[in-house]
Amino acid sequence: MMHARHIEIAVGAFVAAGMAALFLLAMQVSNLSVVGGDEGYQVSARFDNISGLKVRAPVTVAGVRVGRVTAVEFDPNTYQALVTMRIHPRYNQLPLDTSASIFTSGLIGEQYVSLEPGGDMEYLTEGSELILTQSALVLEQLIGQFLFSMGSGDKE
């Protein structure tokens, strides 16, 4: 009888340790605790060029993370990129004329969307579209423009 009890305790401890490990992976290692996955409202924005923006990239206001990019699609009618973002319900007081820009964190860091609040009295809700957008800076284009202006400067 004692033996059976010993085995039961050992199995119980094993299962508890497994659950604790899963819990640790969920809470401490993965993004569960950062921004909720499915809650919040979705807004969209059209960009001329998104460069390397990826799904799950952060969406920030004043550098604070408020949501994430949920989808990146190409719109064949306007030839623009349609970016869908999900914003945490806590941040539901962003003005309707908020503008969106794509920046890079650091020189070789990942791309993220930065929201710049406007002055509208209405707030963004589920399905709103951000009208004012600024495309990503593409380093190659920038260097190209720089070289071009250098070249034209020499001539004059």
């Binding site: 993965s30 569960l32 996955g37």
Partner: peptide
């Protein structure tokens, strides 16, 4: 160490797929 880990490991895509 922890914040970059949490930002880049997805519960469903990474942890659940591993399980």
């Amino acid at each position: 160490f922890w914040s970059q880990m949490q930002a880049n490991v997805d519960l469903r895509d990474d942890v659940f797929n591993g399980i």
